[in-house]
Design a protein around this nucleic acid. Structure first.
Lengths: 137, 137
DNA sequence: GTAAGGCTTGTACCCAGGTACAGGGTCAAG
DNA sequence: CTTGACCCTGTACCTGGGTACAAGCCTTAC
């Protein structure tokens, strides 16, 4: 039940080269090899890659993704460090969610405005959406 | 009360060159010029640039940001199109919020696990966080 | 046993989004 | 009336994240 590169690539919706790239970058662990030299992936690889792609869509860099993945497998030895890192990431995420929510509200009210007010300039909420940063730190 | 490039750059937390770049790319409208040739910005420019930077942190591209900004000032003439675009973006945003929330939950439970279980492998929720895509479309 | 496809490595290229000169004009302080 | 800190334009460069060859080995189907 070993997956080959193209299987993983297809399943995760990425290019085959991307897998090699992730391997070089230390994001995707180097898999076992068949005697032929072919890489033998498990479905863990698919999960990792899809995770990374999602994380990217959410504005995280590859480095962020790598770090998040490392948290996953931090042994109990480095648990405190992992916890701290996780907590920091949590703050990032909360901020992103706040911003997205503000943006959502702005867009939503904009859509409504567009729907009814077919005549008359509407004061547009988009710019205000992200500007006040009501960051209650 | 005209702002100069460095004022805007400082206020928005970006490099001066970035302003020129955004202008070239049509993201930031070309401002009035003094007789000297100096650009004269209003604080609108600051708002636009900060908006763009935030949007980028949320995983939107410059093109996305530009599009969002264009929605803002669509006259009543193109209101229906604007509304459609806004609605599409809303779907994007909702998906991002869903993913982030899943990630948040995963990280949060991870942090907890790290906090108490200082001995014993913990099954880590990070990978599962983003994988099942419970997309109720 | 051979042809079509998939795998390997290495290297080179590409796009988005900036960032950094170089060469020159402007402006305010002293 | 010059010096230092700004601004202008143009062009060249850089990083992150891939993507695309090229040259050669594996595998499966016929």
């Amino acid at each position: 039940m070993a997956l080959r590169t193209s299987d993983v690539a297809k399943a995760a919706g990425v290019n085959v080269q991307t897998l090699r790239y992730y391997e070089r970058e230390g994001i995707l662990p180097a898999p076992r090899r068949a005697t032929s030299g072919y890489r033998q992936y498990t479905d863990e690889a698919v999960r990792i890659v899809t995770f990374v792609k999602r994380a990217q869509e959410l504005g995280f860099t590859l480095r962020d993704a790598k770090e998040l993945l490392r948290l996953r497998s931090a042994g109990p030895k480095r648990a405190p460090a992992a916890r701290a890192a996780a907590t920091a990431k949590l703050a990032d995420i909360d901020e992103k969610i706040r911003d997205l929510s503000a943006m959502r509200a702005a867009l939503s009210s904009l859509a409504e405005a567009c729907a009814c007010a077919t005549g008359g300039a509407v004061t547009c909420p988009i710019l205000e959406a992200l500007e006040k940063t009501p960051n209650p730190s």
